[in-house]
């Protein structure tokens, strides 16, 4: 018995396949001849109506199932595409926002604005949940300026998280805001493009920022941190600050 090479085996395999294909072809041909003979032999036999009815019912059912399956697969297919497109859009938007200065600034401004709006809403909600608007007369342990510029009167006063806020207004509706909080409280002063002056208020260190028409004064004593802001000049704001008295 000789050993066949791979090529010989391949050749033999193909010869086999050809032979078997030929065999199948003849068998298929015979099947057709057989069925022709059977049709002739059983020409009087009709296919039962029940079989036809079954078929049309079955066909309807498989079409319904097919449609259902197709619908689900299409949904999956399109949802995947939409998700992929969304991811691409987010990535592209992120790249554009981060790479173009003007877009980046606009985007962050939008975020900051949104954040401010949210804070505003939050305060309103807190108000509804029990934040009290109180008159200064009901307060205790607070500072009040003995001096105020002409025509300025207390227009609003409130307490939020142990920080007291007072707003004084004049006849022109110009405001001076006076805030006093605990020593641990923190404030951020917008000093960009402003003149910054370090000074002493009643012997305590403070910072005065003058930016366009607005003056902002920030200082503290041994008890509290103070913050005054208003469209007033340097002398006036210092005078107000120095005039505060504990009530």
């Amino acid at each position: 018995m000789s050993k066949l090479s791979n090529e010989d085996k391949e050749h033999l395999k193909r010869m086999n396949d050809t032979f078997l294909y030929n065999l199948g072809y003849h068998n298929s041909k015979n099947a057709n001849d057989d069925v022709d003979a059977l049709l002739e032999e059983y020409k009087d036999i009709e296919v039962p109506e029940s079989l036809n009815n079954w078929f049309f019912g079955y066909n309807k059912e498989i079409v319904r199932k097919y449609r259902q399956k197709k619908h689900v697969s299409n949904l999956l297919k399109y949802s995947k595409r939409i998700a992929a497109m969304l991811i691409i859009f987010i990535i592209m938007s992120s790249v554009v926002i981060m790479s173009v200065d003007s877009f980046r600034i606009r985007f962050f401004n939008m975020v900051v604005e949104t954040s401010q709006k949210f804070t505003l809403v939050s305060q309103e909600e807190n108000t509804a949940n029990g934040l009290k608007y109180e008159l200064v007369s009901d307060w205790s342990d607070y500072y009040y300026p003995a001096y105020l510029p002409k025509d300025y009167t207390l227009a609003d006063a409130r307490i939020l998280n142990n920080t007291k806020y007072m707003t004084f207004k004049n006849l022109d509706d110009l405001e001076i805001r006076f805030t006093q909080g605990g020593l641990k409280s923190q404030s951020q002063i917008d000093s960009e493009n402003g003149e910054i002056i370090e000074l002493l208020i009643n012997g305590n260190e403070g910072i005065l920022v003058i930016k366009e028409d607005i003056s902002i004064l920030y200082w503290s004593n041994q008890e509290k941190v103070f913050y005054i802001q208003g469209a007033i000049d340097k002398t006036t704001i210092i005078r107000i600050a120095e005039s505060i008295e504990k009530k």
Binding site: V35, E41, Y42, V47, P48, N59, I62, Y66, H71, N74
Partner: peptide, 30 residues
């Protein structure tokens, strides 16, 4: 497009049955 697909599948099986149902039945019966 889904309707076209459905119709194709449905038509194929239907056409097969309509064309060869007698052959199939007679073969089984024989």
């Amino acid at each position: 497009l889904m309707t076209i697909d459905d119709l194709k599948a449905r038509n194929k099986l239907e056409e097969l049955y309509k064309t060869y149902h007698k052959e199939m039945y007679i073969t089984a019966y024989s």
